[in-house]
Computed example of a mutant assay.
Amino acid sequence: MTATTDGRLPDASAGGGPGSTATGGRLPGAVAAEWTKAWTVRSTWWNLLGAAVLMGLACLQLAIYTVHANDNDDPADDKGVVGAGTIAIGAVDLVQFVLIGLAMLLITSEYSTGAIRATLQWIPRRGEMLAAKTLVAAVIGGLAGTVLAAAGSLAALPLLGHWGEFEFPTWLGDVLAVGLYMAVISVFSLGVGALLRSAVGTLIVIFLVVLVVPASLQASGVTAMERAADFMPAVAGAAFMRGESDSYPPALGLLVLAAWAAAAIAAAHVALRRRDA
């Protein structure tokens, strides 16, 4: 290795030798690396395809159900005229688990294959590695959620017929709300995955926290438990997207969901600093 003119060896982190160019490092470089990894594995594309198919089918089913409920002889289940965006919001209950799986795999797949060791060699600052994965999970989840909500709601609109309503500002707000929810729940999933390191364990915990526990609390008939369910992540997210909660305004629902995501990332960061890869 040749010394520089002032007698020092060239900095390897800056490119190393003659003709080399620094391509970035620290957090921007870590984000670029994680973004590239995310899009060069088949699981990302399969998850997105699965989410697209599920969103389409769920939106079409909800549209058909809405028309049937309005046209039958039982006035008790009438839905009335519904906004196109609310159809996509209704489909989130199913579709979210596909994108949750995608966010989780960004970290758990590396633990299962041992690739996490290489990742930490290239990004030795564990906080930066986690921050990079968090940003990538949020962007992919948010973009996928927004695009799928837009496509699914527009596909369902013809089936709704005169029972469907399309007002662009309202529709756009609903679609963006779905995207924001998907971004934050993806961050929560990544945090749980980094904390547990196991894909199976992460799926079980998220399924319990997102679906089973809130449903059990809401069905308990105990007022305190029903109120506690309002502060579970998916319930808070639904309150944010639908704006129909009696417990708090939509903005607070988003803050509750964000608090769950922040807590998961914080716990994952502590765990990453204290244990071996």
Rank of each mutant, 00 (worst) to 15 (best):
L143Q: 10
V187C: 09
L190E: 03
A118Y: 07
R125K: 14
L190C: 07
V175C: 10
V178Q: 08
Y181W: 12
G191I: 03
L190W: 01
S186I: 07
A131C: 07
L211K: 12
Q121T: 15
Q121P: 00
T113M: 06
I140C: 02
S189G: 12
K133L: 12
F166Y: 15
P158W: 14
L190S: 05
G191M: 02
L203W: 12
I204E: 01
L196I: 15
R125W: 11
I204V: 15
E128R: 13
L176S: 08
L172K: 06
S198H: 08
V210E: 02
V192T: 11
A155G: 09
W171K: 11
I116N: 12
G179S: 10
L157K: 01
A151H: 09
T134Q: 05
L154W: 14
L130Q: 09
S189Q: 08
I123H: 05
A183G: 08
A215I: 00
L120W: 15
T113R: 05
G142P: 01
L154I: 14
T202D: 03
H162N: 01
V213A: 13
F168R: 08
T170M: 04
S112H: 13
I206E: 07
P214S: 04
V136K: 03
V200D: 00
G164Y: 00
A215Q: 15
A183P: 08
V184W: 05
V213W: 08
L130Y: 08
V200A: 15
E165A: 03
V175Q: 10
S216H: 01
V175N: 08
V210W: 03
T146E: 10
R197F: 06
L157T: 02
